[in-house]
Design a protein around this nucleic acid. Structure first.
Lengths: 204, 204
DNA sequence: TTATTTTTTAATCAAATGATTAAATTATTT
DNA sequence: AAATAATTTAATCATTTGATTAAAAAATAA
């Protein structure tokens, strides 16, 4: 209630905690994160975390929801745009998603692994359960290749965008790849993915 | 020391613990797993876990190493087979990997997310750091498409095999997909991935 | 200024959790 | 059978960790 009355002047502390929480949760996952880690990263007293957010779980839910919105916020408008071609959409998805993840490299693994343990956190975003199934994108896929389940293409497309980031540590270790090289390759992918997808859609 | 002397008659308890550990660790991850969870799943007294494996971490390392070996054990021999064509290899990888993961659906997310938090666990397997870079597979890719970094194809190939399992909960929730349908689609992929890869390699 | 409200701190609690110990039980050896 | 070794159990420790509380400090309102 204290918080509500003020609500503007001193956002800094609350936001500092959220920012630290984003960082620590994303890096270590919910279970491995201690509220003390967050407090330290935010350079605040531990009690403040509970003062502002009531509990670790509440704070996590806020961070998680934001991350999920980032994840789907990029996707939904593109999928349902009735004025673009299938190729346009593939280009947009590859480009926007890769940019998004380059700025939040831990996003995919964070979201997917937290979803495994806490499917409940996912519920809120899934009430509109048809944004994918009824999307323009899926319809266009279906029209082009009625013989193959459109989700096959959808999953492959997302996989080509996201999977490199998921296996990034393995890949870099295995090939002595520098961060710079990895990032360059991901930018290259923006061009490659549409070409590949087109070829896949044609392939018999 | 007690363990060493016997070592054969009563493997059952030790193996029961390992089996339970595999299950619980895979499902919840290291940090979220309590040794009591494992003890309960194995139907043994908690102290036995420490009697046989000294610590949670030691037990985890054993489980992790096994999982990693599964992961790479399938891959390495295929990649380095000098007697098979590129197409053969792609077919083998898709087929073997999808079968492997169908039997261990939590394997990819488990390995990738634990690797994020404990890169050390990865060290042992990475001493031979060249099994990928110097592989026959990479050479064949390079010969076919010298204009594109061969890792682009490698990552895409693995992504097409593994990513569907990583996003499985999201996908099923979003499309009301039944387990059976998902599994059928994954089997279908064994056929699709080689076709797609071939098309991608040709695409300009 | 004085009073009131909001924010921050230090100390502490209670529960969870990994680990240990000493004793009891079971199996093996002599 | 007796002695020794291996396995299992119940009880307990010590630490970690999320959360609370009461008091101090700072900000705001009167």
């Amino acid at each position: 209630m204290a918080k509500k009355v003020k609500a503007d002047t001193d956002v800094s502390t609350e936001e500092k905690i959220k920012e630290a929480a984003r960082k620590v949760f994303s890096k270590k996952g919910y279970a491995a994160t201690r509220t003390r880690d967050i407090a330290e990263a935010a350079d605040i007293n531990l009690a403040l975390l509970n003062y502002y957010f009531r509990s670790k779980e509440k704070l996590f839910e806020i961070v998680m929801l934001e991350k999920m919105q980032k994840y789907f916020g990029v996707l939904i408008p593109i999928l349902n745009n009735a004025t673009t071609t299938l190729e346009n959409k593939v280009e947009s998805i590859a480009s926007k998603y890769i940019d998004l993840i380059l700025e939040n490299p831990e996003l995919p693994l964070f979201v997917l692994s937290e979803l495994r343990n806490n499917p409940e956190h996912f519920v809120r975003l899934t009430q509109k359960t048809d944004f994918l199934t009824n999307s323009e994108f899926i319809k266009q896929m279906q029209k082009k290749r009625p013989d193959i389940h459109p989700l096959h293409f959808f999953v492959s497309l997302l996989g080509m965008c996201l999977f490199p980031f998921l296996m990034r540590p393995v890949l870099q270790k295995l090939t002595n790849m520098k961060d710079k090289t990895f990032n360059e390759m991901m930018l290259e992918r923006k061009r490659l993915i549409p070409v590949w997808t087109k070829a896949m859609l044609k392939a018999k």
